[in-house]
């Protein structure tokens, strides 16, 4: 007989996936349109004038970063908006009254966020093939780093939603923290082009490590040590996961 926890977990994942598929014009279509514009304007029009970056043509250089940017924003956005919407409509109470352990609630929402992040990342990757060639230098690194990144940002999205008390609160972090960190995370340039002090500052940005490791998996070049990037991702998963569990266990923002 199927374990009740497994049924509960698949129920949450099924609901989350069904939600983002049902509203695909809000979830799957926008990253496709935005990224095609990036490919055309930055990759094709401006990139032609820039020439090579890190030994690869500019389009090939920016595509991994743009895929990663898509995965980050969509994993985060899926969980933060879905969980907050559950709070707002009080439908989170369906979970709170039921015997679903908090780690299953966390896992279910995170897998939902990862699913949307990867779905959007895959769409952008397929669209990028119209513009450039992606050699996939190391499949294991490519897949593992994108999965871990999606997990990290899904958990972060859930924490954001737990603290949020109004819809504005779930847009503040993406607008004022995630987007600047992503743009400054080496999506459009190699940090080796920056003056030393800015290189040092850039290396405090965790997204730089995620983008570069993913880029290494696809085209085989990176500005940072790959081993450290994995260590950092692991620490983020553990610390953020622990924090999210603490918040769920104490009922912060969920139970009065």
């Amino acid at each position: 007989m199927t374990h009740p926890y497994w049924v509960a977990f698949t129920s949450i994942v099924y609901k989350e996936v069904r939600r983002f598929l049902r509203i695909w014009p809000q979830t799957l279509l926008p990253p496709a349109i935005t990224m095609v514009l990036y490919f055309v304007i930055f990759g094709n029009l401006i990139g032609r004038r820039i020439g090579d970056m890190g030994g690869f043509d500019y389009m090939q250089f920016i595509v991994p970063g743009l895929i990663m940017m898509t995965v980050i924003t969509n994993s985060y956005g899926n969980v933060s908006s879905s969980f907050f919407s559950n709070k707002f409509q009080k439908s989170i109470e369906e979970l709170l009254v039921s015997p679903v352990p908090n780690w299953i609630i966390l896992s279910g929402f995170v897998v939902g966020g990862v699913a949307r992040g990867l779905a959007c990342g895959l769409i952008v990757m397929l669209l990028s093939l119209w513009f450039t060639h992606l050699p996939i230098s190391n499949l294991a690194i490519t897949v593992s780093v994108i999965l871990m990144t999606a997990v990290v940002f899904s958990i972060a999205g859930l924490i954001n939603a737990i603290f949020a008390t109004k819809f504005d609160d779930v847009t503040i972090v993406p607008t004022f923290i995630l987007t600047p960190l992503t743009y400054l995370g080496g999506v459009f340039y190699s940090v080796s082009l920056l003056p030393d002090v800015w290189q040092w500052i850039s290396k405090l940005n965790p997204i730089l490590y995620m983008v570069n490791t993913f880029r290494y998996g696809i085209i085989g070049v990176s500005d940072i040590p790959i081993g450290f990037a994995y260590f950092m991702l692991f620490v983020f998963v553990v610390v953020l996961g622990g924090w999210a569990m603490y918040l769920l266990n104490t009922g912060r923002g969920l139970r009065s």
Partner: peptide, 24 residues
């Protein structure tokens, strides 16, 4: 107070809740 997702269908809401209690 009403505490279901207003955009979900009636059957989905009930089946979903059964899933949380581990019912196949």
């Amino acid at each position: 107070e009403f505490n279901f997702n207003a955009f979900e269908k009636v059957l989905d809401i009930v089946v979903q809740q059964a899933g949380y209690y581990g019912l196949p």
